[in-house]
Amino acid sequence: MWSYEKRLQHPVNITERNPRLAQVIMSQFGGPDGELAASMRYLSQRYSMPNRKVAGLLTDIGTEELAHMEMVSAIVHQLTRDLTPAEILEGGFEKYYVDHTLGLWPQSAGGIPNSATFFQSKGDPITDLVEDMAAEQKARTTYDNILRLVHDQEVCDPIKFLREREIVHFQRFGEALRMIQDELDSRNFYAINPAFPADFTK
């Protein structure tokens, strides 16, 4: 069960509109390496995670990703709040605007809608955790790419916070992978799915 707290994990207070930047940052809401896909990935994977500590980590990081999705959404909202038609056209925001006005809709910067195909839940703890580590790196790279385009400190600050969280999550998932590997059967170290230990050689 979840409950909502009426606060952002890290404050977002942006005073200057920038629709062009909003369309880029939007990718971390609904894009392939965005926070929505990240949350759904971890919260989906936890059911087949045999280690209780790692299942807890997936729960807690999956929950934090929802809070990150909220922060990214707040950034996009504040960057596009009260845009005028002229600003929409100048900022190249018209293609998004025509379908969604100034509402939030999960898509990539290039307009590709959010999809469960952005992540896997494979039912194999090693496979899933390796994906999770890669996902954190991909999101970190995306934040690096965004930061090269941002010159507004009010936008930079929360983006930098989010980037740092990717690094922390990568570290924690690395530890989780090692915990799972430590519990593996040494006679079948490289082939086994520890969550589905059927004898597939017969």
Binding site: S3, R46, R52, G56, T59, D60
Partner: peptide, 21 residues
Amino acid sequence: IEAYRVEVDNRWTWVDEPWPW
């Protein structure tokens, strides 16, 4: 049962009990 309400003595108990699923 709630992550902000973990009462710590000598050990982090959040991951000890079974998960609800």
